[in-house]
Amino acid sequence: MITGAAYGIGRATAALFAREGARLTVTDIQGEPLLAFADELRETGVDVETVIGDVSREDDARRMITAATERFGRLDVLVANAGIIPLGDVQEMTAAAWDDVMAIDGRGMFLSCKFGIEAMLATGGGSIVCLSSISGVAGQKRQAAYGPAKFVATGLAKHLAIEWADRGIRVNAVAPGTITTERVNQMRDEPGGAEYLAAVEAQHPMGRMGEPAEVASAIAFLASDDASFITGAVLPVDGGYLAQ
């Protein structure tokens, strides 16, 4: 199951998993693009279940997991990807904006993992990959709400890995740098966004931003049996950003 699969990293991950032969449950709050994407996958012969919902709502998060287990009988992999990226410093961010990002990026990831683990325990284990960020490992300017929310993803991966390692459930995270998702590209049209992105791009030692497919490859590795002795890890996919 991949949350936030209509666009960006979630979409790229679903496409890669489909090419690898996975049976997919894809979810998003944006119904029209999600359903259109699922139809594209089905045209290639992929078995796909779709759930439109909000990961921050407990009933929706539970319904997503239930849809996967009822359709396919089990949940082997959960990619907790859904999130929003507000841009602003602590003076610019409102309390309402803080609550929004913490609800989706924080509470939503907690709920996805909670119900995902419940399903995995019933069938002997599985693998969870949480989407963190370089902002969830180190400080960045103008990430006063998003960065702390991504520290939730980092913390969940570490704590849940320890809680469930002896029950066959691995929990890891990826920490992407700045990736050319639709959301990041939209920042160019926001106040200060173009200047912010130019500065951030220059901070990546490889001299460019990453592509969604590059993050998807890291997620697929952590989800797979090739990473069978890896849990509690936070894997940077950041062009060297965090190595500085």
Rank of each mutant, 00 (worst) to 15 (best):
M1Y: 08
I2S: 11
G4H: 10
G4W: 03
A5L: 10
I9W: 11
T13Y: 07
A18F: 03
R19E: 15
T27F: 11
D39E: 15
E40Y: 03
L41F: 00
R42Y: 01
D47N: 05
V48S: 02
E49H: 09
T50A: 02
I52F: 07
G53L: 09
V55N: 08
A61S: 12
R62V: 03
R63S: 09
R63P: 07
T69E: 05
E70R: 14
R74P: 01
R74C: 05
V77H: 12
V79H: 15
I84H: 00
I85M: 15
I85E: 13
G88I: 12
Q91R: 13
M93H: 08
T94I: 06
T94G: 14
T94V: 05
A95H: 13
A97K: 14
M102S: 08
R107Q: 03
S112P: 08
F115A: 03
I117V: 09
C130G: 04
S135M: 02
S135N: 07
G136A: 03
Q140Y: 10
Q140S: 11
K141N: 13
R142H: 13
A145C: 07
A145H: 08
A153Y: 02
L156I: 04
K158S: 02
L160Y: 06
A161M: 01
A161E: 01
W164E: 08
D166L: 06
R167T: 05
R167M: 02
R167I: 03
I169C: 04
R170N: 05
R170Q: 03
N172V: 01
A175N: 03
E182G: 14
E182C: 10
R183P: 02
V184Q: 11
Q186P: 05
R188D: 12
E190F: 15
E190V: 13
L197K: 10
A199I: 10
V200A: 15
E201C: 13
Q203C: 10
H204L: 00
G210T: 09
G210N: 02
E211Y: 13
P212Y: 14
A218N: 11
A220M: 09
D226H: 14
G232K: 02
V234W: 04
G239Y: 06
G239N: 08
G240M: 01
Y241R: 14
